[in-house]
Structure formats: structure tokens, C-alpha cells
């Protein structure tokens, strides 16, 4: 149970904190940081669901019973690359918005109202 809290709990908490930052902050850079935190939380969660007690990297020759689940690792690789791509694009948006509006506060852009 303690391990559940440490690994699952902390990664979910990290994702939740990132989500709250992304939804409540006004500054675009902080929002991007929030998105990244969320991404990291999800990646941590993915890695921890694939862990096997006493396991090691699934590179042979190791006994089969010691190999951790390889699929989440492959998924995390994909997720990280996608995260990098989104962050780079988001930062470019931030640069351009700062140029056009002279601010990074998204509530000042127009109205955030629906």
C-alpha cells in the first residue's frame, strides 16, 4: 500500500498539480510549465505500472522473471517525444503572442469568456 501511495500517488498528484496550473494560471509560460508537469506525471505513472518487483531492463540475457514490462517503456518514449513537440510549439506561440500583444497574460488577449 505504501508503495502504491509513493509511486501511483505521487505521479497522479504531479499530473493533478500540472492540470491545475494549466487551468488557473494566466501567464502563458506558467501554463506551459503546467502542461509539462502534467506530461511528466503521466510518464511517471506509465513507468510505475510496468515495474516488476526486483526487475530490471528487458535486455537479454536476463532471466524472464526479472524483466519489467517493456510496453510502458515504449509508450513513454513516444509520449516524451510528443511532449517535446508540443512544448516547442507552445513556446513558439508564446514568442509570437508576446510580439503581437506585448504581454504573456492570456486573460488580456481578448475575453476568455465562452
Amino acid at each position: 500500500m505504501a508503495e502504491n501511495i509513493i509511486f501511483y500517488g505521487s505521479s497522479i498528484a504531479l499530473a493533478a498539480i500540472g492540470l491545475l496550473i494549466a487551468l488557473t494560471r494566466r501567464n502563458l509560460i506558467k501554463i506551459i510549465i503546467g502542461l509539462d508537469l502534467m506530461e511528466t506525471g503521466v510518464n511517471m505513472f506509465l513507468i510505475s505500472i510496468g515495474y516488476r518487483r526486483g526487475g530490471t531492463a528487458p535486455i537479454f540475457d536476463i532471466p524472464l522473471s526479472k524483466a519489467v514490462d517493456p510496453v510502458p517503456q515504449a509508450l513513454v518514449l513516444t509520449a516524451i517525444v510528443i511532449g517535446v513537440a508540443v512544448t516547442a510549439l507552445a513556446l513558439t506561440f508564446a514568442v509570437r503572442i508576446h510580439e503581437k500583444y506585448g504581454t504573456l497574460d492570456i486573460s488580456k488577449l481578448r475575453e476568455m469568456k465562452w
Binding site: 499530473a15 492540470l19 494549466a22 487551468l23 502563458l28 501554463i31 502542461l35 502534467m38 506530461e39 503521466v42 505513472f45 506509465l46 505500472i49 510496453v71 510502458p72 509508450l75 509520449a79 508540443v86 510549439l89 507552445a90 506561440f93 508564446a94 509570437r96 503572442i97 503581437k100 500583444y101 492570456i106 488577449l109 481578448r110
Partner: peptide, 30 residues
């Protein structure tokens, strides 16, 4: 231009929050 960038960045923020949550759901199912 101003409108395009504003629309784009709002879409980007919500879109990436959405797809990250989707990934979380996929991870849970897995």
C-alpha cells in the same frame, strides 16, 4: 495575426490537456 495566434494558443492549451488526460486513461486501462 492576433486572432489566429489567440485561437491557436487556446486550442493548443486545451488540446494538450485533453490528450494528456486521454493518455492517462489509456495508461489506467493498460
Amino acid at each position: 495575426d492576433k486572432k489566429g495566434l489567440e485561437g491557436g494558443v487556446k486550442y493548443l492549451i486545451l488540446g494538450s490537456v485533453g490528450s494528456t488526460l486521454f493518455l492517462l486513461g489509456v495508461a489506467l486501462l493498460y
